[in-house]
């Protein structure tokens, strides 16, 4: 399979925090959601991919090119939107066009103009007077307007209202219609990811807990609701995490390891994440 993004055994140590042996494989043509708590290592991983910080070990390739030696060859086709980093304040959306025209060989003026209008970004207003949502939209318009094949989004939809998020997600879904295009998006708004993603990668305390197709995850996991007695009879290896409440026990389980007549509800990605992090562990 051809990968848009390959992160292999990457580690990075900080004081008090370490990314350990991170592995992510994003096949071309798919959207991957990158989830985890604040401080789990999502942004650090993305910075490592973009060579904004130095890794201690491992290997990363972006659109088939090594990210330390050959990243410049693929940057024309790389669109990045970060939560806290924008065009400087005194520029306007029209200025951004003149600037990008001179930075990207692949700059597509018509596409940029179309997105700018779709996002109703005024041409003459300076960025300083933009709202957070407008800044995000401007970054996204720029990120998609240069023959983009891989889109990397770091919390690009966080802090925006549901309507704007919906609007932006639609643009991403349209982008992914072209089967050569791929997206890696980190977010802690799981519902957004659940709607859009093909793959889910879950990072917790600097380690990847899983990186799998969303459909597989949703078929494999379920939320079991039962009494404490019934729960005692369930095999340890089936239980990923559980919570006790006054009605009994709720547990995230691997469905095919459960025998007998019990109720298993559908687990959402949010359930899967919460039980992995917060749920009590059997082992």
């Amino acid at each position: 399979m051809e990968y848009a993004l390959e992160v292999v055994d990457v580690s990075k140590k900080y004081e008090g925090f370490a990314l350990e042996q991170v592995n992510i494989k994003l096949p071309r043509g798919y959207i991957m959601g990158f989830i985890g708590e604040n401080g789990a290592g999502k942004t650090t991983t993305i910075k490592l991919i973009l060579d904004l910080i130095k890794r201690d070990a491992g290997r990363i390739s972006v659109l088939g090119k090594d990210n330390l030696t050959e990243l410049n060859q693929v940057k024309e086709h790389l669109g990045v939107v970060m939560e806290d980093s924008y065009f400087p304040d005194n520029l306007t959306a029209v200025n951004v066009n003149s600037i990008c025209k001179n930075i990207y060989k692949t700059w597509d003026e018509a596409k940029y103009e179309a997105l700018r209008k779709q996002f109703s970004l005024p041409g003459g207003k300076i960025i300083k007077e933009y709202s957070k949502g407008m800044k995000m939209k401007l970054s996204i318009a720029a990120a998609l307007s240069h023959g983009t094949k891989l889109l990397i989004l770091d919390e690009a939809t966080s802090g925006l209202d549901p309507i704007v998020r919906e609007e932006i997600l639609d643009v991403f879904l349209e982008f992914i219609q072209d089967e050569k295009n791929s997206v890696l998006m980190s977010s802690h708004i799981i519902s957004d990811l659940e709607k859009a993603c093909d793959y889910i990668t879950f990072i917790h305390q600097g380690k990847i807990l899983f990186s799998r197709s969303k459909d597989e995850l949703l078929t494999d996991y379920g939320v079991l609701k039962c009494s404490e007695e019934e729960f005692a009879g369930i095999d340890d290896s089936a239980v990923k995490g559980y919570r006790k409440n006054s009605f009994g026990v709720e547990a995230l389980v691997l469905k095919d390891k459960i025998r007998g007549r019990v109720t298993i509800d559908r687990a959402s990605i949010e359930d899967i994440m919460l039980y992995h992090i917060k749920g009590a562990k059997r082992q």
Binding site: L50, D51, L52, N72, K75, E76, L78, V80, M82, D84, S85, Y86, F87, P88, D89, N90, C100, I103, Y104, K105, I127, S139, I152
Partner: peptide, 18 residues
């Protein structure tokens, strides 16, 4: 200082800019 305030360098480095 404008660039620093907007964290422009971080953003620019994701463009075809070294």
């Amino acid at each position: 200082s404008y660039d620093e305030y907007a964290k422009w360098d971080k953003y620019a480095l994701t463009m075809p800019v070294s």
